[in-house]
Design a protein around this nucleic acid. Structure first.
Lengths: 190, 190
DNA sequence: ACGCGCATGTAACGTGTTACATGATTAC
DNA sequence: GTAATCATGTAACACGTTACATGCGCGT
């Protein structure tokens, strides 16, 4: 399991409230891990009980007060231990692939529309990722600092993960084109 | 939710027992959906209660008897209705990406080994998929039958899903190379 | 007055994972 | 004899999803 570890990484990158974490899970972290605020509050409470995170009440003006969480020593140790622990490469989970094979027993025209919708969603996400890349990682690849500069590791790793998201979306678009071409081969007339 | 629908598709392709389904989920269907026998038995029982599948006791010699499941009219209707129903494009879930961003706060050398392990696993899976493709889908792309031949839809759709698996594995290998190159940039000396 | 953004939560349910459990036959 | 394959299941727990619930401040 990794939601707690994803939260630890996010809090190490920057402390924040449950609400803020939920928003990050819609953005950067959300490129590769999703979580709703309900899950986050539940897990944060457990992590607090286990001493993995520290809480600090932050009064705010014009907004509700918030609880700012940051990683405690125990949490850092837990993350470190998880990072040492090998994980199994996970397999994909694609509802859409189930539908594609199922379309052999049903109306393929409906599937064509569904695939087109998904293709558009992936195009949108790709555009969104690319915009984020231009915004957050402009300039030359090898940063301005000296080679081996440790301060850039965090950014470089964030960038390579984002490139993974981009590669994934691009692959999906290409594959969905393949699916549409396949459907067209026995589709248009029937 | 789609396990029950994945099972319906698999049983339409070929009726079989819970055990056989579990084995298929390690192979062809498993390219895009995983399930253990415990899940399968649980869901099969529910589907039987709901009248989605018919059961037939098949006595065997030299082996335990088995229950052969096949899709009933109600099941076929349920699948059809699900196929009509649009689903949301789902986002990826990558433990490994969490680890990559986490490596900024820990030993990157450990991550390098982990990434290499995953890369190897994806290479193995890719080889396995390609072997399956050569075995199950030889010959020219556009089959021997006349254009629009409906009998080939099932195979064509299975093939395009397999090509999706291949594209996914290839994308992952390329991306993990990118990750390794990124790690090497601030890795070897520290 | 209404809705949106910020901020935190509870409850119920469904799904997935892990461990345990049984028992026959075939191959080494 | 011992392990592997075939075949079916129960139980407990962890995790994810959906719905419900509250309340303030700001903009229109």
């Amino acid at each position: 399991m990794a939601l707690e570890h994803a939260i630890l990484v996010s809090l190490l990158e920057k402390p924040g409230s449950g609400y803020e974490l939920a928003r990050r899970f819609e953005r950067s972290i959300g490129y590769f891990w999703t979580a709703t605020h309900q899950q986050i509050y539940r897990v944060l409470k457990r992590m607090e009980n286990d001493g993995w995170v520290d809480v600090r009440d932050v009064p705010q003006q014009g907004r509700p007060d918030k609880k700012e969480y940051s990683v405690a020593d125990l949490g850092r140790a837990a993350l470190s231990s998880w990072l040492q622990d090998p994980i199994e490469p996970e397999s994909v989970r694609h509802d859409l692939a189930v539908k594609i094979r199922g379309a052999a027993f049903d109306d393929p025209a409906v599937l064509t529309r569904e695939v087109e919708r998904h293709r558009q969603a992936h195009r949108d996400r790709l555009a969104h990722y690319r915009a984020g890349e231009t915004r957050d990682f402009p300039g030359p690849e090898a940063s301005t600092a000296a080679p081996g500069a440790p301060l850039d590791a965090e950014r470089e790793l964030q960038h390579v993960v984002l490139r993974g998201g981009i590669a994934y979306e691009q692959m999906m678009i290409d594959w969905l084109d393949d699916v549409l071409a396949t459907l067209a081969r026995f589709g248009p007339s029937r």
